[in-house]
Simulated scan of single mutants.
Amino acid sequence: MDISPWIPCGLSMASVFLCLMLLAIGPDPRKSPDSSFSANPPQSIQEENISLLDQDPKTSPKSELVNGVFAALSDRNTMLLVPVFLVNIFRYAMLSLLIQYASVRFGLKISTGATFYTETALINIILFLFLVPRSTAYIRLAYNVRPETIDLVLVRTSVALLALGCVFIFAAGFGSRVSALSLVSYWISNDAKATLYAAIVVLESLGHAVGDPAIQLIFAGCLGLPPFWRAMPFFVAAGFYALATLSSSFVKLDQGMEHQEEPLLGND
């Protein structure tokens, strides 16, 4: 960035095209001998398809999917996790704002402040490649703890760390979204998971549309104030994360546990 902003922009676009090339040359799962998209499906699947055609329209897979989504949205635990997904939009907005704040408050160059992203990535790699999987497996085997209980603890801990991180260490709580998605997956059927995940993405996008400009406007309004008050956006974000932590503390795992399939984790 010190030489030209087009250099990191070009590297980003090159990375995107590289990903597209990797996807293009990747194996097609439909051509795999173990794929469920076989040209000659087993007799049981054929019978199942015939039975689906004879079903009452009121109980069609589409209506079951809609009912599953509405059941998930009416679930108390799922609604208590909605604030967690909403406040998660502040993660990268606050990280971007931190670079601007460090530039204004401490005279740190923007290119140097960009290393905050590297720090965040390294912390997440350590957490989710080594620490979280190993500690989760040990706790499940040693203490016979249910996986959804571990996910709930991770959600509460991550959001609490984000609240504290707005004042101290921010990157430690970036895993809250992954844990929240894993936790929600225990309360909904497999048929409704994809639709609910899409709804969560839409909800987060709406949050970005409102939250990102709001944080920037708060920071812009604080630039004319004494140095201490220039950190006001971080105090505001810490308050929102504290509310999300409070909301997740009311989640009770005794409810909505009739669907306990293995969770499908989304990308963070």
Rank of each mutant, 00 (worst) to 15 (best):
D151A: 10
T157L: 12
A121K: 05
W229N: 05
T78Q: 11
S38I: 01
S44A: 13
I123F: 00
G221H: 13
T245D: 02
L217Y: 07
P226W: 05
S15N: 08
T136P: 05
L108P: 06
G256R: 01
S176E: 04
C9H: 12
G175L: 00
I218R: 01
I150V: 15
M94H: 02
F90G: 00
V16G: 02
N267Q: 09
D268Y: 01
D191N: 15
L22I: 11
S179E: 03
N67V: 03
S60R: 11
I218H: 02
I50V: 08
L162T: 00
D2N: 14
C166F: 00
N88R: 05
I150S: 13
I25W: 10
F130D: 06
V251D: 01
L65Y: 12
A71L: 10
L18V: 05
I99R: 02
G239Y: 01
L97A: 04
Y92A: 06
I89L: 08
F235N: 02
L203K: 04
Q100D: 13
E261G: 11
V153L: 11
G68Y: 05
A163R: 01
P83V: 03
L23K: 08
S32A: 14
A198E: 12
P83N: 09
L196C: 06
A137S: 15
L20G: 12
A137D: 15
A180K: 05
R140A: 07
N77K: 02
A172M: 11
D56E: 14
N190T: 06
T118M: 07
W6T: 09
N77P: 09
F219S: 06
A172I: 04
K252C: 09
L11R: 05
G266I: 00
I200P: 05
W229M: 09
G10L: 15
G256V: 00
T120S: 07
A14G: 10
L122F: 03
T59S: 06
S111P: 01
N67C: 07
G165K: 00
L162K: 00
H259R: 12
P226R: 09
S247V: 02
W6E: 15
Y101D: 04
L22A: 12
M257E: 11
K109E: 15
V153Y: 14
T118W: 12
M94G: 03
T115P: 02
Y197H: 14
L52F: 10
L11A: 13
D34M: 06
M13T: 10
K31C: 06
L97T: 01
N88P: 06
A71N: 13
N144K: 15
L253A: 02
P41E: 09
R30H: 09
R76K: 11
A238M: 04
S135L: 15
E119I: 03
F170S: 00
V66Q: 12
S51M: 08
S179W: 01
V201Q: 14
L65Q: 15
V159Q: 02
T78Y: 05
A194Q: 14
F17K: 03
V69N: 03
S158Y: 00
Q255I: 09
Y117Q: 04
E64M: 07
S182Y: 03
N190R: 14
A242H: 02
I188R: 12
L164D: 00
S32T: 07
L53V: 04
K31S: 06
P213A: 04
N124A: 10
P41F: 03
